[in-house]
Design a protein around this nucleic acid. Structure first.
Lengths: 119, 119
DNA sequence: TAAACACATGAACAGTTATTCATATGTTCA
DNA sequence: TGAACATATGAATAACTGTTCATGTGTTTA
């Protein structure tokens, strides 16, 4: 089933018990995929800026665009990605759609990131 | 200075004090860039899998490749990205180069991500 | 109902990214 | 020094991503 070559070095061969522990702690493929997707979602400064707007309070698409000096279309595309990742939710009120943070994990993760960035 | 059109909706115009608060809390451009780069680094399942290997203990390139069933070259390229992001460090011992986590922020951030993913 | 508004979305384009392949660098040992 | 080993790296390629532009959907109101 191996798609790639299996490397192996002579001197520092992985002990079977170490390999076993690694495989035991490694999340399953789906979780790894979801985890990467989650961080990928945070990995764009436009989306991060949108989240910082929503940290203040729920905001309609047009106001986000104004606050960030971006087109409505660009913001809308990014909001869709944030919503698919379940980082934000929305509600409609007449013509207007308000977006808001879906939970406080978002603040925590961004906060941890800021800690690392600020050394 | 505006590169993009400034959108503005009639009904829900941003109050100046809200806009001011948003601008006050928004990190500066460099920080936003660094933050996005950091999360981008986490946003690839290969790199996450490498980090999970390193959670167990420092490991040489060849053993990482073996544990993940990947080529040495692919692993080496990704390790360079992780090192540039200061998420891992390395030390040479003869022919072998060992990689290790540079600090425990990495565990924390991945942990927060896992919490979110597992709902 | 028609016009106006707020937002969503598909296609297209330019820019970015992960892997592979070939090869280079650095180290050890005979 | 030369061969073998562990790792690093540049170029090439295919796949992915963010923005723009044009247009579509849903809602209100005159």
């Amino acid at each position: 089933m191996a798609i790639h070559d299996v490397e192996s070095c002579d001197v520092y061969k992985l002990h079977p018990d170490r390999l076993q522990k690694i495989e035991k702690d490694m999340p399953d493929e789906d979780t790894l995929y979801d985890l990467a997707e989650l961080f990928k979602t945070f990995g764009d400064s436009t989306r991060i800026r949108i989240l910082f707007v929503l940290f203040e309070s729920e905001t309609c698409v047009c106001d986000i665009a104004e606050a960030l000096n971006m087109t409505q279309s660009a913001v809308s595309h990014q909001l869709k990605i944030l919503k698919n990742a379940k980082l934000v939710g929305n509600r409609r009120e007449g013509k207007t759609v308000f977006y808001f943070l879906s939970d406080d994990h978002v603040r925590t993760i961004i906060g941890q990131g800021l800690n690392h960035v600020k050394e």
